[in-house]
């Protein structure tokens, strides 16, 4: 599975520029899906038909990642940029980014007078080796993603864009392993999650599922001076009860817990204070969806060293397979 993870996390795909991600994911799922389609916003949707008597279930994992977009090129050929999604300035110094055309740039900032402070985003720039706007190989409006090689050390997997390519991996693996299901399952690889859970919104409005389950990363409370949170790496799949954008459907949370316990899958209950997922959009779509989320615990979210645990990833896949292979009574 590490091969698939490496392929997805190292790929380019800032929000709004997910074409390449679709091309990578499609061949992985083609043999297992009954139908595959792409909607107007670019969501990639794979359908696995149920054997009957089940519900319509939407699974959402977002393909996009945070990144940057060029706003201005200086006379000296440096690029000023804005954020795509939740880019944290303190993670930027010395970063490398890559544009869709392959051009690589390094990020630095205006001189820092006071080293105890961090510059705002507007004081950072990208250096692609150009000396003027004329010889600059990228232009205003071009988007770049961070680059950082995938690292596997024992059970710990580190990469940029683990948020949420690891969710895509959970979706792909689930689709592969799900032999039969009573439900019509729509695996949506969504776009533009990082800029306001937008792809999942249109996909859910269109698909009108009974149940929506997002697959995304969540924060942990197991690092020095972390904000107290009862989630640790390696302790199992996280079943979301609440985040700052939604309260999960109580019946769906109960069902997830029951399935995990019955199949002896390790799990933790998640109450997250900051952030939300595609489940937020699915919940409020149309007449409402019973929405929840299986989260992959992840340290250092929105940095280029997002770290997850392979056992947790496996637990998430097993849990989702158990949920989908069995009847869903909410």
């Amino acid at each position: 599975m590490n091969e698939l993870i490496k392929k997805l996390v190292e790929a380019y795909g800032p929000s709004g520029f997910e074409d390449g991600m679709r091309d990578l994911i499609r061949p992985e799922i083609e043999a297992y899906a009954d139908e595959i389609s792409v909607d107007a916003l670019g969501n990639l949707i794979a359908v696995k038909k149920g054997s009957g008597g089940g519900l319509k279930v939407m699974i959402a994992a977002h393909m996009d990642e945070i990144g940057v977009m060029v706003t201005h090129i200086t006379q000296d050929g440096f690029l000023r940029f804005t954020n795509i999604g939740g880019v944290l300035p303190h993670n930027l110094m010395g970063s490398r980014v890559q544009f869709a055309n392959g051009v690589i740039g390094v990020i630095s900032s205006d001189r820092l007078e006071d080293r105890s402070k961090i510059h705002p985003l507007t004081k950072f720039f990208i250096d692609v080796g150009a000396s003027s706007p004329d010889d600059c190989p990228v232009g205003v409006g071009d988007a770049a993603g961070f680059i950082r090689p995938f690292l596997a050390q024992g059970k710990r997997l580190t990469a940029k864009a683990m948020d949420d390519r690891i969710g895509c991996v959970v979706a792909i693996e689930t689709l592969k392993r799900l032999k039969t299901t009573p439900h019509d399952v729509y695996f949506a690889f969504t776009v533009q999650e990082e800029v306001g859970v937008r792809g999942a919104m249109t996909a859910a409005n269109h698909l009108d599922p009974d149940v929506g389950i997002a697959l995304d990363v969540t924060l942990t409370g197991d690092v020095p001076e972390a904000r107290p949170m009862a989630i640790s790496l390696g302790q199992g799949a996280a079943i979301k009860v609440k985040d700052s954008g939604m309260i999960a459907h109580a019946g769906l949370v109960r069902l997830m817990k029951q399935r995990a316990e019955a199949a002896q899958i390790s799990y933790q209950l998640e109450v997250l204070d900051g952030g939300s997922t595609d489940a937020r959009s699915m919940q409020i779509a149309n007449g409402g969806t019973a929405a929840g989320c299986i989260s992959i615990p992840c340290r250092y979210v929105h940095s280029q060293s997002e770290t997850v645990d392979a056992d947790d990833v496996e637990s998430c896949i097993k849990l989702l397979v158990e949920i989908l292979a069995n009847p869903i009574n909410l």
């Binding site: 954008g245 939604m246 309260i247 937020r280 919940q283 409020i284 149309n286 007449g287 409402g288």
Partner: peptide, 16 residues
């Protein structure tokens, strides 16, 4: 339901 967090029931019931 869930007005205090996101006006959930208003959006969904009006739609349905």
């Amino acid at each position: 339901v869930q007005e205090e967090t996101r006006l959930l029931g208003a959006y969904t019931s009006a739609f349905a």
